[in-house]
Write a protein that binds this DNA or RNA. Structure first.
Length: 291
DNA sequence: AGGGGAACCCGTACGC
DNA sequence: TGCGTACGGGTTCCCC
């Protein structure tokens, strides 16, 4: 389940590997992962979208690869006669649970949804077993609309403790739900919400409006710490996540809360509690030292 | 505004 | 062993 550190890892690898590469041919194998206006939107005619993607990407040049929220953004431009890049559009890839962007060297199989063959002989595949991930090809205005609807990036220095505190304290919902609400804060999912709250000693069910400013400042710094540490170890492979070379992330062994229900809290030794009652998602915390 | 539930998928785990 | 079924997991969308 790629969240911010995992999609960041993929984006950094692909930016280094693909910047400047030219697409020779496009094969849409599974068109049901394609979306129109934005990732996650209900799908339009899959056949029409497949034709649009093939048409737009054939001959296109990779301008750069970046990340926003939990999505990898591949920016393409068309190479014109003069050599300059025009008609920038972006393929927004949201892998969800089992999606992966793989560069050549990984064997092809039945789960390839999209394959881009590059002029230099390499290839890039979007691979997804469950196909809950999505690919959306967005022009400049649709891309801007999608980005504008997302909350700030937790690692952006422009997100000050004051602003973060306003996000958390401005809602009566459970603080964990606020952390995971992509409209309020982008990129944080279940794993890192559990971890950040454990580190900051805040109970996941505490209402945002009842988290103090001091706790908010601590939560932001612990959130940034856990995200940065995970990026340094190329993310968390709990189960399905793979990087662009098919490799696993190294952060799973560092998790203190997620997936450790019943195990002793590494801070106080009490058994970690778990519930699914918070929006139906696995929530793990220490009753003794998180309040 | 926000909470609940369905839908999207299919490998995995389980029951019989 | 095989077959059938429940489940998970983030997000959107619809309804209350």
């Amino acid at each position: 389940m790629p969240e911010l550190p995992e999609t960041e890892t993929i984006a950094r690898d692909l930016d280094g590997a693909l910047r400047g590469a030219v697409v020779r041919s496009v094969e849409v194998v599974r068109s049901d992962v394609l979306r129109g206006e934005a990732p996650g939107r209900s799908r339009r005619s899959a056949a029409a979208l497949a034709a649009e993607v093939a048409d737009a990407l054939t001959g296109a040049k990779v301008h750069g690869v970046s990340r926003r929220a939990k999505s990898v953004v591949i920016a393409f431009g068309t190479v014109c006669a003069g050599g300059q890049v025009e008609g920038l559009h972006r393929l927004v890839v949201t892998p969800r649970f089992t999606g992966a962007l793989l560069i050549d060297g990984t064997p092809d199989d039945a789960y390839t949804c999209l394959r881009l063959d590059l002029a230099d002989g390499r290839s890039l595949r979007y691979h997804d077993v469950r196909r809950l991930g999505t690919l959306a090809l967005l022009g400049p205005s649709a891309f801007e609309a999608w980005e504008m609807a997302l909350g700030p990036e937790p690692l952006d220095p422009a997100l000050t403790p004051e602003r973060f505190s306003g996000i958390i304290r401005g809602s009566s919902r459970a603080v964990k739900s606020i952390l995971m609400d992509q409209k309020r804060l982008a990129g944080v999912g279940n794993i890192y919400a559990n971890e950040a709250l454990w580190r900051a000693r805040i109970r996941p069910t505490r209402r945002g409006e009842r988290v103090t400013r001091v706790q908010c400042a601590l939560l932001l710094s612990e959130l940034r710490a856990v995200l940065s540490e995970s990026i340094a170890l190329r993310g968390t492979t709990f189960r399905d996540y793979r990087d662009a070379y098919g490799g696993r992330g190294g952060f799973a062994a560092r998790l203190q809360a997620y997936g450790r229900a019943g195990e002793p809290c590494s801070r106080c030794g009490d058994a970690l509690s778990a519930t699914h009652a918070l929006e139906g998602r696995q929530t793990v915390w220490c009753r003794a030292c998180q309040s």
